[in-house]
Amino acid sequence: MKSILDILSGIRPEFDFSASQDYLADGMLDSFDMLALVSDLDSEFGIRIEGTQIVPENFCNLQAIRLLLGRYGVDA
């Protein structure tokens, strides 16, 4: 199973996602990348992240994404 960092790197391979605390403010993810990330997380972990959860604060850094996945029973 891929890690969250693997998935992030698959979307934007030019960035080091372990080094940022705010992917959106740092220009590493844009609004479309966020949707691509949700699509990949859904597929990889067999979940369906709700549309209302697709907001910047849930995808701004690794910790926020882990917290979101935790709400769907995923320990990533």
């Binding site: 609004s31 479309f32 949707l35 549309g51 209302t52 697709i54």
Partner: peptide
């Protein structure tokens, strides 16, 4: 504003 429209629809 794609994000605002997406959020509006889902909400």
């Amino acid at each position: 504003d794609g994000s605002a429209v997406f959020n509006f629809v889902q909400t």
